[in-house]
Nucleic acid binder design. Sequence first.
DNA 1: TCTTGAAGTTTACGCGCGTAAAGAAAAATG
DNA 2: CATTTTTCTTTACGCGCGTAAACTTCAAGA
Lengths: 382, 382
Amino acid sequence: MAAIFRKTFARANLLGANTTATARRIHTSLTKDRARGRQLDGDKIKNMEEFARLSGISRPTVSRYFNDPASVRPSSRKRIEQALERFDYRPNIFAMNQNRRLTKNIGIVVPYLADPFFAEIARIIQLRCISAGFAPILYSAYGQQKLEKEILEGLTALKPVGVFLAPLGRMSDRAAIARFCRDVPTVLFDSNIEGMGEAFVGSDNFSFVQQTVDYLCRTGSPPCFFEMRTPANPNANKRRHAYLKIMEDAGLQPHVVQVEGKGWGFEEIGRRGAHDMIDAGPLPTDTVLCSNDRLAIGVLAACYERGLRVGRGDGCALRVASHDDHPFSRFTCPSLTTAAHEYEAVADKCMETLFSLIEAGGRFSVREETLIPARLILRTSA
Amino acid sequence: MAAIFRKTFARANLLGANTTATARRIHTSLTKDRARGRQLDGDKIKNMEEFARLSGISRPTVSRYFNDPASVRPSSRKRIEQALERFDYRPNIFAMNQNRRLTKNIGIVVPYLADPFFAEIARIIQLRCISAGFAPILYSAYGQQKLEKEILEGLTALKPVGVFLAPLGRMSDRAAIARFCRDVPTVLFDSNIEGMGEAFVGSDNFSFVQQTVDYLCRTGSPPCFFEMRTPANPNANKRRHAYLKIMEDAGLQPHVVQVEGKGWGFEEIGRRGAHDMIDAGPLPTDTVLCSNDRLAIGVLAACYERGLRVGRGDGCALRVASHDDHPFSRFTCPSLTTAAHEYEAVADKCMETLFSLIEAGGRFSVREETLIPARLILRTSA
DNA sequence: TCTTGAAGTTTACGCGCGTAAAGAAAAATG
DNA sequence: CATTTTTCTTTACGCGCGTAAACTTCAAGA
């Protein structure tokens, strides 16, 4: 582990502890006059000591006030707040965090922030954290295992009270994640990794697929299942299994279409895959259920390119449905019938779980798993 | 200002300095046994002092090593690195940042991270920062003035070497931004605010509109210009002005369609606006140039809903083009002809500008402005 | 060999704050 | 009003590190 660290350290990290050429050169070349030049205001309060003197209260009491205004005598509080009106002072965040055994930082780690699904869920969680008085810090691994590792290592050093982690999934370094979860109270979300973290909050993939398959079967031919051959996300596997199970239980012949492709360009993978699928000959069904909306967006693009009309009306060659309720799925052509995540509910459950985890001292005696069911959204594509 | 601060402080901030009920209660209730419970490894190195002893080097020299491994004698360096192999030690980030006059933090602030355009540009900048050895911290104001202010206040306390700021625009608190730019070396990007920050890196909106208008005029009827009536972003205004100027210079009659709507749901605004526009009667032209891709996505959705075929072929009722090359515009139906940002070039220019700004001590004698021209991308919508 | 000085190391101090323990004040109890 | 208890304040110390200044080492030049 020491070796691992040194290697990371020798390149670049998220801590600002060190070191690539550029940062080092710049840091070295910087002279002290820099920060000075900006402090034009003369009567700036230097530290809590000075502020305490000006407000006529001892520094430790002032310190208490900043940690909890209600914890000091009302008379003291009033004097401090009066001083706060007069002088511009705020405690040094680094000094605070150095001495506190726990900061108020909450880490939020997602696998790919440029994916609107993660951007949206991160947005909600982040705003919730702020409302609750925490300091959320958002990270994205951008699909890279190495980056995810570096983020987790850096985050550990930030002594967060808690972390929401949506791991890369198959690409994750399991050992690194296990180590992280051992050191930091972590709530996994979106992608479950068995046994990691104190809790998991995610979607009930079975419910997602059940609702879409049921609807599709009820209103037309049973769907085939369209997915990537080697999905990075464990949810994809769970959805396929759900599809197979549901079809089997209904006495229907399942049909899984697996398309090639790597990386996070799911739309393009879906588009190419759909072309290939159509080229390969007639489908056993006119109904395609995509593993997720981003693939479906690609499928719709391919259909459009081929002049295949998608939807449930007359003259439609295909029905396409999917899962996730991606923010854009409302605006595809045709708009996408999909099983929606309850974004707000997921975020709320995440928050709730993390809070009780923190209050429990960072450990649950048994790992909690919460699976939130889908909400079917009927639009025009199926 | 003291009053302003106190108010913010009394609610929640991004610093973890304080305070809403939840965070406070949790923090108060936490006892020391918490962090302890997780340090199972017995031989953990406490601090640099101890590590220095173990490596047989004085602590200040070790400190020097971590700030620049090349700055210590090769023999010392070797001994330190050998110790690093054996023991798991890394400097305390808070202590480092407290004492350094400048950290290696770089702030990246965008107005709305769930907008894929900002997610994408932030992604590239962030990865560049990491490669350069800095510690990028990503913030989103999520369209809220108050949040943008809090972010800037919190960021100031983080003593960043530099900040990339894409302000909200019209919604920004100019005074707050001015104050921030006075305290922190800032490169504005995307949205220019006259005189703020040491530099601006953005798009040459005139070039964007010129390329689309030229192309559209060359290949069909001159376009009308489709936009929001009260855009939050200054680029929108520049694009309208460019459109008017270009049309005028070409001796053509301009026609601006302004649609109502607030907030960041541009696709829906575009969709409704397009319906209204079409309801309002025949257009003076069959070509619509949208101010940005997200509006265009809405317009395409509306057209699809009405059965209006979009594109340049026979049987097409409308041509639609736009600006930005939104990550999704490749997958609209039809795919969107647009003027693309040079994402990489913008990010590179941002980095370059910030580095020279940092090396210049955080100030430029004259504010730098870089406008990067567009690259026309012909797809099938026009 | 002696000087000179650069390069590297050490000494010594300070950064701004949290917090345990001791002490003082206020509130509750009789 | 005296006493106990609680709440609050103060004293005193430590957190882990950066860095100026003093000191040492070592190589080169005379």
